[in-house]
């Protein structure tokens, strides 16, 4: 079989990618595979890192393999200089800012690693904590408020609205200090 890409050399590498149930097959020679960035993981030292970075890579292609090399401006963290591509290679963030820089791409990754979860539900640091706890409380009250409005319990809804206003007012006050 000839290489799909160059149609000259013998295809020695055969890829099957299954992404979201969609199967893609490719038959390439070694050179073209390298050009396309398709390499085999090093099985001798296959580590959890490789596995993880495999999972991260897994996320990127929308339609099988990235065929165009004209990627949009690469995503790079301003604080530590780590690019998103490098992140998917090493499977590690470079600093806390990376979370913000790559934020739009992270949900699917976390979902896969943490059993469908994307949102922290545990401890909040004490010092920063006060504000965040109030925010969480406000969110919770808003949800309740909506429920009461839907079921036309306006008295209770009005009480919740006042409570939310009060909390919001206090929070702004706190920030001004």
């Amino acid at each position: 079989m000839l290489c799909e890409e160059c149609q000259k050399r013998q295809a020695t590498l055969h890829f099957t990618k299954i992404i979201n149930g969609q199967k893609n097959e490719m038959h390439l020679c070694e050179e073209c595979a390298k050009d396309k960035g398709e390499t085999f993981p090093n099985w001798n030292s296959y580590s959890i890192q490789d596995l993880l970075s495999g999972l991260l890579h897994f996320e990127q292609p929308k339609n099988g393999v990235r065929s165009s090399s004209k990627a949009p401006t690469p995503l790079v963290c301003n604080n530590c200089g780590l690019s998103y591509d490098r992140f998917t290679e090493i499977g590690k963030f470079g600093c806390s800012e990376c979370y913000r820089t790559f934020s739009t791409k992270l949900d699917p990754i976390f979902r896969r690693v943490h059993g469908g979860n994307t949102r922290h539900a545990g401890k909040i640091p004490r010092r920063e904590g006060g504000k965040i706890e109030v925010k969480r409380k406000i969110e919770e009250l808003r949800t309740q408020l909506r429920r009461h409005v839907e079921s036309e319990e306006f008295e209770e809804a009005a009480r919740l609205r006042d409570e939310i206003r009060h909390l919001e007012f206090n929070m702004q006050d706190g920030e001004g200090e």
Binding site: L52, L56, G91, K92, F93, S96, Y99, R100, L106, I109, F110, V113, H114, N117, R119, H120, A121, G122, K123, I124, P125, E128, I132, K135
Partner: peptide, 16 residues
């Protein structure tokens, strides 16, 4: 720390 993600760690398997 991030309100949404929790304690930020180097490896995505420890975040939260």
């Amino acid at each position: 720390f991030d309100e949404y993600r929790g304690y930020l760690t180097s490896c995505p398997t420890n975040v939260g």
